[in-house]
Design a protein around this nucleic acid. Sequence first.
DNA 1: ATATAGCGGATCA
DNA 2: TGATCCGCTATAT
Length: 94
Amino acid sequence: MTPFAKKVYKIVSTIPIGETRSYKWVAIKAGRPNAYRAVGSILNKNPWPVTIPCHRVVKRGDDLGGYVFGVKKKALLLIREREIKEFLTARLVI
DNA sequence: ATATAGCGGATCA
DNA sequence: TGATCCGCTATAT
């Protein structure tokens, strides 16, 4: 566990539900704009596969990139997160 | 210490 | 779109 990895995990876990960021974005936030490849490397072998929302980190644009459990699951997860976000956002009116 | 792989990204044809 | 290089970390040898 390197300091860079720690930063990556922290940053990734701050990404809001239903939103996505690019690997490059994370790399920049982690202080290594050119280490975007490393971000994937780290996320791939992350110690907390479910706790860390690595599915919110995408390649770029509409390209999801890769995912341990398959890109399809990644896409589904993102869709579900968008749904649950609406659910959580809904106001409860008396 | 060196080599290789990996959930990326940019460039070139 | 496909081929190719770049750059960084983790892991294997």
